[in-house]
Amino acid sequence: MIRIHHEGFRILLQTLVILGLINFLVIWLSDMEWLENSVLFLSLVVYILVLQFFRNPKRFPPQGDDIVIAPADGKIVAIEEIEEPEYFKKKMLQISIFMSPLNVHVNRYPVPGTVKYSQYHAGAYLVAWHPKSSTLNERTAVVVENPSGVEVMHKQIAGAVARRIINYAKVGSKAIQGADCGFIRFGSRVDIVLPLDANILVKVGDKARGGEQILAELK
């Protein structure tokens, strides 16, 4: 049984109605069976693709105050030292995960604790793997302080196709490790910003599994 994220309910209904109308018009206006069958087949393919985009598989997050789990499915495209300009304003480590349209697009809290910062930024729509997309694209930035007092940032970054970032994090709210913290449509990137002394457990090119895979250990 496929679990569907609630962010997809309205779009799936709209898609079903539009495809149904298209098929109705084709059947009504055409007497060519091959055309009717072709449109029906293409409609099924389109609906299945939209359906799989909004799937929300159950994940079983490992629990630990000092571990950082992947906030999203996708490919790890960068692990680098950066000068973080928005909140920390100092050198930090950043892990970047690129989410293709075929990945699960649910975003999850990487650490437990309290939300200390949550901010939306309007911006451009560079391709998500562009080095400057992290600071120039439409994005959100969320900082969670874990029970040990260590702060971790995750950023939802729109890509060339994504036009809708949904962020559930509110300042002062409780962050449950592995629980939903947002959603992005339709292809994008998530960055995790960590202290320099974090022990990174993954490498560039690895496939991240949101809500389950441990990316790093905090000290």
Rank of each mutant, 00 (worst) to 15 (best):
G74M: 11
E80D: 09
R59V: 11
G64I: 02
A162P: 02
E7I: 07
E81L: 01
L12G: 15
G182A: 12
V161F: 08
M99Y: 01
L13A: 15
V152G: 01
S173D: 05
E7H: 11
L13C: 14
K116D: 02
N199I: 03
I67R: 00
E217Y: 13
V46I: 14
G187K: 12
L49H: 10
V190C: 11
E36S: 06
K132T: 06
E80C: 03
S38Q: 09
S188C: 04
V77D: 10
K58S: 05
N137Y: 12
V115K: 06
K90G: 07
P71E: 04
V46H: 12
L194K: 05
V202P: 00
Q119L: 02
L51F: 14
S96R: 04
A128G: 11
G74W: 08
E33D: 09
H105G: 00
L12A: 08
R59L: 11
N167D: 06
K219F: 08
V50Q: 15
P85L: 06
E217M: 13
N107I: 09
V111C: 10
V39N: 03
D66W: 03
L136Q: 06
G64M: 02
E151F: 04
V111H: 03
S38E: 07
N56T: 10
V142P: 08
L21T: 09
Q94R: 15
H130M: 08
A198S: 09
Q119I: 00
I157H: 08
R209T: 15
V142F: 03
P147L: 01
N167H: 03
V190K: 00
D206Y: 15
K155I: 03
L93K: 11
A198G: 02
K91G: 05
E145V: 14
I79Q: 06
L35E: 07
V161G: 12
I11N: 15
V45K: 11
D65N: 06
K89G: 03
E86R: 10
G64V: 02
S133W: 03
G159K: 03
V193K: 13
A169V: 05
